[in-house]
Design a protein around this nucleic acid. Structure first.
Length: 598
DNA sequence: AAGCAATAG
DNA sequence: GGTTCTATTGCTT
């Protein structure tokens, strides 16, 4: 409960993450008490982390209850095909459970109200809203599925403790893992070794475990059995793939397959459009009926996505038209349409999602035209909340990207490859213009001040671009000749370069007289900004819509930044999901309270 | 890079 | 007896 105090006193906004009736679970890597001091003066600081695990209960049901408040008081089930995938607590009181068949459910609870939940759009959107809300407090948020988030709040806690008199007298308790946190297959292998309980695993000789699972996995199993999990919370960022699928009892004609693919692609292409990135890979997956292996075993074929650009809305249908033959080609690689076949599922997927800029600029992205240089300051708070792309706002995401996205990337990768470097937790958040080496030499209180979100948010807003409006105007229709920067049909990136690459000089002046003042924004991180600060909204608004979309997407992606796909850590098998072990069966984390009662 | 298995909610 | 709709990671080729 001390953790709750620490977290929830953070600000006084009524958009509070959670309160009374909710039971929070926190897990500690290190059973040792938290050190109240953030900055070590000498010797090694004991490793400690405070990680929140937030699990939203009956998530789909809650979303539907928000959409339609009359559903709050009735037993509600979310139906996908023949099953109730989740249900609200009223329904659970009548004995309903997850993944129950509709027929059984109706028998148990004749008054059950069903809402179709096969289309995940609303769930997906609400899911990201929750993640964004959490990220407004602290960027280290890792998603697991649509309804769970892990949040590393170590720094928030440490900072709070450092500011709290008498915090020495606080005590903390860790949560002890006590559930099944291995999957089915692994459990079977363990069982074959005679390991069925946590204690079995604790007592089982490591070397025999290594023989079965290999060294890294074995070590990890052992650690988890001891309640030790030092895996970092890795910010999830934007998804790495978008897919759409449908299952059915039987599909056996090529015509039906084609129609289904068309249907799936229509919605997937639309989603891809909103995202703004360009998929480099397209994949088709099927599941065939077979008496033995009924519901597992999917087969897939994938290929490079040849489409150059189809981000314009009116090209959406074209895109589908182009992709359907491609999909059918992949389909024929798996299924001989001369023989009979029996499919029970089709999935289409875009992956290898790239921003347009990434392919063009060696520096990494088109964003480099907006960000002046690694050491330049950025304007803050130039933004409004009215900028909505396709109805899905990622409003707070870029806020937390207090640093140049490129810099952030570098810092994150450093942190990942260097897990023992305790200072990384601190330095990865350094304000721009601050050399980490120099930073370490500064007096403690100065360091603290530099790290406070208030400071970071107050960074050189000192109007380097006086003409920039305080609010982003609504994106106008493209007016060809009116504006000083008019973009015609040519979408060459060079066209944008000049217009966007504005006054470096004035910015550099600001850089040199770096102001160390502390701002007084009441709510750290939670401003309403949507662009990186140094983007001129006027110029932005004149970009072609698809380019705007891509940029938004890119910023969205790069916010606190994210997994670096290529830099895998070797030899980690059972990964961060293991953390999930803790905290099952907590009380309702009700979303409802954030919405006006009916 | 492709295909797939395992795992998760 | 039936087994949804995603998404990620890692192994293998």
């Amino acid at each position: 409960t001390h953790i709750r105090l620490v977290l929830f006193d953070m600000d006084s906004s009524d958009e509070e993450v959670e309160e009374d009736e909710t039971e929070w679970k926190s897990s500690f890597v290190d059973p040792a008490p938290l050190s109240p001091s953030l900055h070590k003066t000498s010797g090694p600081t004991p490793a400690h982390k405070v990680i929140l695990h937030l699990d939203l209960d009956c998530f789909y049901a809650q979303v539907e209850m928000i959409r339609n408040p009359t559903l709050r008081d009735v037993p509600l089930g979310i139906q996908q095909k023949n099953i109730i995938v989740t249900c609200n607590y009223v329904a659970r009181q009548q004995g309903l459970t997850k993944l129950m068949f509709v027929t059984d459910a109706m028998e148990k609870c004749p008054q059950l109200v069903l809402v179709k939940g096969e289309d995940l759009t609303h769930y997906r959107e609400m899911s990201y809203k929750v993640t964004e809300l959490l990220m407004s407090y602290c960027p280290l948020v890792e998603r697991l599925g649509f309804d769970e988030n892990f949040m590393d709040i170590t720094e928030l806690v440490d900072r709070r403790l450092a500011q709290t008199p008498d915090s020495n007298n606080f005590s903390f308790k860790g949560h002890v893992y006590n559930h099944l946190w291995v999957g089915h297959q692994t459990a079977k292998r363990l069982q074959a070794l005679g390991v069925v309980s946590i204690q079995d695993l604790q007592l089982f000789p490591l070397n025999e475990l290594v023989r079965e699972f290999g060294s890294p996995s074995a070590q990890r199993l052992k650690n988890l059995a001891a309640g030790v999990d030092d895996s970092p919370v890795t910010p999830t960022g934007a998804p790495q793939s978008l897919s759409d699928e449908d299952s059915f009892k039987k599909m056996s004609s090529t015509k039906d397959v084609l129609e289904k693919i068309q249907e799936l692609l229509s919605s997937l292409v639309e989603r891809m459009n909103k995202d703004g990135r360009q998929p480099q890979t397209f994949r088709l997956t099927i599941r065939r009926y077979s008496a033995t292996n009924k519901w597992f075993s999917r087969e897939s074929r994938q290929c490079p996505d040849p489409q150059p650009h189809r981000t314009e809305d009116h090209l959406c249908d074209d895109a589908v038209v182009q992709l359907v033959p491609l999909a059918m080609k992949l389909f024929q690689k798996m299924v001989d349409s001369n023989t009979t076949f029996h499919l029970t599922l089709i999935n289409v997927c875009f992956s290898n999602l790239q921003t347009r800029g990434a392919a063009i600029s060696g520096k990494g992205s088109i964003t480099s035209f907006f960000t002046h240089s690694a050491t330049s300051p950025r304007k803050t708070q130039v933004c409004s909340s009215s900028q909505t792309l396709h109805g899905f706002k990622w409003k707070q995401s870029s806020v937390v990207a207090v640093e140049d996205p490129l810099l952030q990337t570098a810092d994150c990768s450093t942190a990942r490859s260097d897990p023992d470097e305790t200072n990384n937790a601190v330095t990865h958040q350094l304000p721009p213009n601050v050399d980490p080496e120099v930073f370490k030499l500064l007096p403690e209180d100065i360091q603290k001040e530099l790290l406070s979100p208030a400071y970071v948010n107050s960074l050189p807003s000192t109007s380097t671009s006086p003409s920039a409006p305080a609010v982003v105007p609504d994106v106008p229709h493209m007016t060809k000749n009116k504006s000083p920067h008019s973009f015609t049909s040519s979408k060459n990136i060079e066209d944008f370069k000049e217009a966007l690459n504005k006054s470096d000089l004035s910015d550099r002046e600001t850089t040199e007289r770096t102001s160390w003042k502390t701002g007084d924004r009441p709510s750290p991180w939670s401003s309403d900004c949507e662009f990186p600060g140094n983007v001129d909204p006027e110029v932005f608004s004149e970009l072609p819509p698809d380019v705007q979309r891509e940029l938004m997407s890119e910023w969205k992606q790069q916010k606190p930044v994210l997994k670096i796909p290529s830099s895998r850590k070797p030899g980690r098998s059972l990964t961060t999901k293991d953390r999930k072990a803790a905290g099952k069966g907590s009380q309702a984390n009700s979303l409802l309270k954030y919405f006006k009662p009916s």
